[in-house]
């Protein structure tokens, strides 16, 4: 089932009098349950595309349909609602709230979604075990390693049972061992839960996990082919 349909999307940034076209007319369709890598060098537009799919930003032109809804013209609150209900994020810099414990960071999206206390507790416990951090639940981010922080971010992204997880360079700040661990978890959860994963990377080891690879260059999709994991 197609959950994302991107049609002729452009995104132009204006800094002072200088206009930069980050995306120049992208068409892309993503099916439910995909494990897709957006690859390309710096400045190719993969992060911009991820931000547009994640409703963190709006395209200059074109349309983005998520579950059949055109989100490209949504207002701020509508975009916040769809992010809250449909999308989970994993960022390169872990992006945890430093004043909250691992448990509370994972719990936060559930609170925003108005989930009751008993169900919150059950879901957070389940996710924290899924990322193998049950013994670090009360630790704050600064008491966790980079790998552990990214695992908390994965749990937080998945706890609301979103339609898709968007990960921007999820292993860029991790060493090889932790990077592999994070990708293993993401891959396993994709298979177990069926949630769609789209991740931006330029790390070939990460790309090797993808079952589909979308290569971008200069704001355009250069190639769109099956990944190594699909073969």
């Amino acid at each position: 089932m197609e959950i994302i349909k991107i049609s002729n999307v452009t995104r132009t940034y204006k800094i002072g009098n200088v206009e930069t076209q980050a995306l120049r007319g992208v068409d892309l369709s993503i099916e439910s349950g995909e494990f897709t890598a957006l690859v390309g060098p710096s400045g190719s537009g993969k992060t911009t595309l991820l931000q547009l799919i994640g409703c963190l930003d709006q395209p200059t032109s074109g349309s983005i349909l998520i579950n059949g809804q055109d989100v490209s013209r949504f207002n701020r609150n509508q975009r916040a609602d769809i992010r809250k209900a449909t999308i989970g994020f994993i960022f390169q810099f872990f992006a945890l709230i430093p004043t909250l414990s691992a448990y509370e960071n994972i719990e936060m999206p559930l609170l925003l979604n108005g989930i009751g206390a008993a169900e919150r507790r059950e879901r957070v416990q389940k996710m924290i075990q899924a990322v193998d951090l049950a013994d670090r639940a009360r630790n704050r981010p600064d008491q966790l390693s980079g790998g552990q922080q990214q695992r908390v971010a994965i749990a937080r992204a998945l706890v609301t049972r979103p339609t898709m997880i968007l990960a921007d360079e999820p292993t860029a700040n991790l060493d090889t061992v932790n990077g592999k661990q994070v990708m293993d978890i993401m891959s396993r959860l994709n298979q177990e839960t069926g949630v769609t994963f789209i991740f931006a990377t330029h790390d070939p080891r990460v790309v090797s996990y993808a079952r589909r690879v979308v290569e971008l260059r200069d704001g355009l999709i250069l190639e769109n082919h099956a990944g190594a994991a699909a073969k």
């Binding site: 992010r83 810099f93 945890l96």
Partner: peptide
């Protein structure tokens, strides 16, 4: 600022 971005990304609205 970045934390505000994170909260916003996970769906916290401006009012909250």
């Amino acid at each position: 600022t970045r934390e505000i971005g994170i909260l916003s990304a996970i769906g916290m609205k401006g009012g909250r």
